[in-house]
Amino acid sequence: MVLIKLVLLAALAMTAFAANSLLCRMALVDTDIDPASFTFWRLTSGALMLTFLVVMRNQKPLQEGNMASAIALFVYAAGFSFAYISMTTGAGALLLFGAVQVTMISWGLFKGERMSTLQWGGFLLALVGLILLLLPNAAVPQLSSALMMLAAGIAWGVYSLKGKGAKFPIEATAGNFIRSTPLALVLLVIFWPGGEFHAEGMAYAVASGAIASALGYALWYSILVHIAAIKAATLQLSVPVLAVFAGWLFLDETVTLRIILSSLAVIGGVAMVIWVKKAAG
């Protein structure tokens, strides 16, 4: 029963991550909001939502979390928003989650985690599925955008790794969001001359921050204490697949046979890493 609950919670968290990609693309492409404003409203609304949840639990909003995690959260959110201005969804997702995998798996191996031959096979199968899904549709991104998305992926990997030690995930997430908002405000001020207020874009940012980010990240923090870094990294390979199907549902993007096959490869590969036991010895 506990395992089933963990799987369901993980599915919800991955859905929230995919929703962030969808909301960001819709805001930056279909509205006039700029990436600095999107980042600010996303983090601020997330901080407000989490503060409300913490207060309702009779806790203090800043009693958990730390500045290092807040900086990692800010770098991820800002890099994510700015990178998506000049790259396709596929290229961005591939760079983002590729960087996450390298960061978390490298740390896991450094700390002594090991994968069996079948688990490595599952990880490679998931990567092949991602490449099949994303590369044929990905325009070559600008170097600056690629570097920003890579930085965002590394920052998210660091944030996830630091979250593994959180005893109180909701309070920790709240503290991190609150500490990140001044950084987002500085970013907004720096880019203010080029910023434009747009109600629809702000609504997307608030939905991303208060729901997909605040609630999704708190949920992710609560799951991380139960799974190894390597499995946590591989689990996130499913997010680009979910994002593709979200684009099909909400943006009328075509789902081809290639998309279906690559999705099966990613999901199957993730399942192999999570469920296959490490070989003895």
Rank of each mutant, 00 (worst) to 15 (best):
L150S: 03
L150F: 07
A151D: 00
A151C: 15
A152Y: 01
A152H: 07
G153I: 00
G153A: 15
G157N: 06
V158K: 01
V158I: 11
V158M: 08
Y159C: 04
L161F: 02
L161K: 05
L161N: 11
K162A: 04
G163I: 07
K164W: 05
G165H: 12
A166H: 06
A166F: 10
F168G: 04
P169K: 01
E171W: 02
T173M: 08
T173P: 05
T173V: 01
A174Q: 04
N176K: 01
N176R: 03
N176T: 14
N176E: 04
R179A: 08
T181C: 14
P182D: 11
A184H: 09
V186L: 14
L187D: 02
V189E: 00
V189P: 01
I190F: 15
F191D: 13
P193K: 00
P193C: 10
G194M: 06
E196T: 14
E196F: 07
H198T: 08
A199I: 15
E200V: 12
M202D: 07
M202L: 13
A203S: 13
V206A: 05
G209T: 01
A210F: 01
I211Q: 14
I211Y: 09
I211R: 09
A212I: 04
A214E: 03
L215F: 15
L215K: 04
A218W: 05
L219N: 07
W220R: 00
Y221W: 10
Y221M: 11
Y221K: 01
S222C: 02
I223E: 04
I223T: 01
V225E: 09
V225F: 08
V225P: 06
